[in-house]
Amino acid sequence: MNQTRRFYSFRSSSTLVVFVTLVVVFSIFTPNHIFINERNIAALGKLFPDLGIIALGIGVLMICGEFDLSVGSVLPFCSFIFAQQMIADFSPFVSFFVSLLVGAILGLINGIITVKTKMPSFITTLGTLMFWRGILYVWSKMMPMSIRTFVPSGSPFQKLMAGNLNAYIPVQVIWFAIFAVILSILLHFHRFGNWIYSTGDNRDAAHAMGIRTDLVKIICFMIVGVLCGFSACMQSVRLGSFAATQGVGFEFKAISACVIGGTSLRGGIGSMTGIFLGALTIPIIDNGLILMRVPVFAISAFIGLATILFVLLNNYIERKTR
């Protein structure tokens, strides 16, 4: 009994329960158990980290009390930079670091605007979402750019970003796991994590205790930017091209993943375990339902429903444990 209470006192427990239930249900009830078929697992593992890696960063930022809607534009922007650098004859590795740097700078800009204007980041990053997309469209003329010749299948960089460890495990999953571990250490064991939580939970108190809350927020925005840069390169290498429509809609999907993982919209509450599971749950619902031959047009409705139910569930658990 006490153990059960303790278990439920962790916010991510509800996510874990739902996650395990989904996996079990889908494994049993999909025709021919196709859900746990290696082809399905490999396909899932190859695709979900594009958004998943960004969601990890968004989770950290939300704990810090801010949102970043601009990811939907920062991602294709970094992808464009990545492609351009390679076309300008830089090696894939150099281009990759330039892309990360650009991501960091765009994050820095988001952070500085938000902190200095004291406007809600929901508004400031909505602005930068539209701004960078406009700039990107003008600059790239929306033309797709092929990068296949620079990162051909089997080249070291291609293997690093879009290769396979074995039949089940695409390398993208490994990257997702690595970022989850790094951010988990940062959030739960590093002193900077305590500053993130304090800033999101009670900014005045954190400030009064000598934490530079503005700086903490800016760094969190930059973490998101760098992850966008990484995800951009990963996606471009897999697709073999830059396309102006990369990242469309990622902003709300990432927030929804974090909310499903038990992250509070008001900041100060959330955990890396929860965010990790949340980032996995959405693609699994999408995939599992289609595999169960649910009409594809209904999928959106299920994900919307799941997001709302999770928020209700988390609020309920919060009240129960208080």
Partner: peptide, 17 residues
């Protein structure tokens, strides 16, 4: 929609199912 990872995920799942 237009975002390729989403499209790829949808179509892969559909073809498997």
């Amino acid at each position: 929609g237009l975002e390729m990872t989403t499209v790829e995920q949808r179509e892969t799942s559909y073809l498997l199912a």
